[in-house]
Design a protein around this nucleic acid. Structure first.
Lengths: 337, 337
DNA sequence: ATGAAAGCGCTAACAA
DNA sequence: TTGTTAGCGCTTTCAT
């Protein structure tokens, strides 16, 4: 299997099989209108030469690029140190398996990058796009959709866009189930630490908390905005303790902040879950590693990635946008509540 | 800026500029042998039409694919929940910035994937490959190198391969500096928890520990093999305490295991760093989040990714493999030592 | 069921 | 300095 001067072409396969290029092409494309022996000869020849279709030539003809992009809308440190990110990518890779498309990875850091990317997409060099970690008011998805390119977002967009598919987790329901758990543990004085409220996930978790607390006939004991960071969680917990010293439970909008809250509670001499029960969100690796281990609301993150990939491919194939999906969450019981 | 029926071609740009296709091509390729007014006309036309080069057509001519792959050699859960992974990817993205190549992401799960990938590469569909997370004896890098494809590995390969570039961190030196730190803190009874010894990083860290302890005229108080997991670290710590109850310092080959060790030490009633000082490796987000925060040996992980990308591009451009690089580590002082 | 031929948009060799 | 021309390897009519 020495590397020949050049990669084998359809022409060489056809020659070896003793048929025309057109017939060889038909076989390899899976056409049924080909004679049995011609088919076998072509297949054997292709195998023999370990033929691989030249994508460039194919693209030129079909006007498809056979590649899709996995695009991160920001280059903030926090996002990349989030283990979730890698899992979404893995899920997406799974989700497109068997479709014979390339997964192109890109980060849109500066405005220049966004412009270049948009032109690139409009130039027809990408059959579809998965978009992650955009700010709510980001114009990019709308522009791409307007250009007729299939787009799927991870997370509900801030403002609804017609024809834009997305995959989200049930943030509202997850928050509600966290409240239910806390109440079932006998807690009555519940507070929450929210995420940044320019993100729909944070908004929904906050709203779910609020609604479900009232559902139980209770009054929320305070909500402090956090920023999804460890230090932010710690500061928020401090503020919460100052405001409502008698709280006995906290729902924290992500695990990293929950960990920060744990540290603050420890410093304040409150035992967890004895004095204060804590429930996080995400089920990040941090949650299991914390001490006490954090009870949390798990997002099915790999599944979300898979769905992202699957829906994009479906959207491309069918030529019309797929409806949004919202995947269910699940409580993971550990030590903190 | 309505999406035309078709993307603008070089032909249309040339027409608008009033020159031939060749001249338009020259301008866009940055050739200097073009008259000033022709150049300006072309540039204006390209801008006007927001022209984007058709990569398929270009590839067909140049026999370059203008894309490189970022390939993960395994699909193990652990690898993907490791925050490092995302940072390497980001680094690689940085490293190739400005080269106008696509970064194609791929995971090689099963053997079928590997075969398909190898054929794909041999087919000339990738100008170069970055390889991560391979087992030492993986035949893939050798085969790709033999096929004449530029390849760069993250981490020193198990068996040296001629013409194979790699980017590593100074595991040996990092381990030595961890020992120095512990000794400078007055510790004399040092033990270590190693990583899986089929990985060169684990081997080097272990060797560095051993050598530097002896350098200080001390005798290592035991080494237990771990598996880079939280539970593995915990079990290893348990074994270590049973074997050498009087140890006063532990060098742990990664932060996740160090966290497990911390948990075990807490359960055993040993204070950290009072009774036992602990130094980890990686500077993962976990290290800062732990309680006590883990003093650790930082790998410049984003920089490694950047180097990976840069060296691959250099190797492609120059047509010859780049020598390996080993980036320095740095001690991050926190609470555990 | 099969082949011949056209042409996708670009680059590169050659002419002028 | 510029234009003309010839393909790159594939898919896709249109004949046969």
């Amino acid at each position: 299997m020495v590397r020949a001067g050049r990669a084998p072409t359809l022409e060489s396969v056809a020659a070896l099989a003793g048929v025309s290029r057109a017939t060889a092409g038909r076989v390899l494309a899976g056409s049924t209108t080909v004679g049995e022996q011609a088919r076998e000869a072509v297949l054997r020849a292709a195998e023999e030469l370990s033929y691989v279709t030249n994508r460039a030539a194919r693209s030129l003809m079909t006007r498809r690029s056979d590649s899709i992009a996995f695009v991160v809308g920001e280059s903030e440190e926090r996002f990349f140190s989030d283990p979730h990110f890698a899992l979404v990518l893995r899920g997406a890779h799974n989700g497109i398996a068997g479709h014979d498309v390339q997964l192109v990875f890109s980060i849109l850091g500066r405005d220049a990058d966004r412009d270049r990317f948009e032109r690139f997409v409009r130039g027809g060099h990408l059959d579809g796009v998965m978009l992650l970690s955009l700010h709510g008011d980001d114009p990019l998805p709308l522009r791409l959709v307007a250009a007729g390119v299939p787009v799927v977002l991870l997370g509900r967009p801030f403002t609804p866009i017609d024809g834009l598919g997305y995959v989200d987790t049930d943030n509202l329901g997850g928050a509600r189930s966290a409240v239910d758990l806390l109440v079932s543990r006998g807690r009555t004085r519940l507070a929450t630490i929210t995420g940044p409220l320019d993100m729909t996930a944070a908004i929904d978790r906050s709203a779910g908390f609020e609604a479900q607390v009232r559902e139980h006939g209770l009054r929320p004991r305070g909500a402090v905005d956090g920023d999804f960071s460890l230090e932010g969680g710690r500061a928020a917990m401090r503020a919460l303790l100052a405001r409502s010293p008698d709280l006995d439970a906290v729902f924290v909008a992500n695990d990293l902040m929950a960990l920060g809250a744990l540290h603050e509670l420890a410093d304040a001499g409150r035992s967890v879950p004895g004095d204060v029960a804590v429930v996080g969100f995400d089920d990040s690796p941090l949650a299991a590693a914390a001490h006490p281990a954090i009870t949390t609301v798990r997002q099915p993150i790999v599944a979300m990635g898979e769905e992202l990939g699957r829906r994009l491919m479906a959207g491309i194939k069918q030529g019309e946008p797929q409806p949004p999906v919202v995947l269910p969450t699940e409580i993971v019981l550990r030590e903190s509540a």
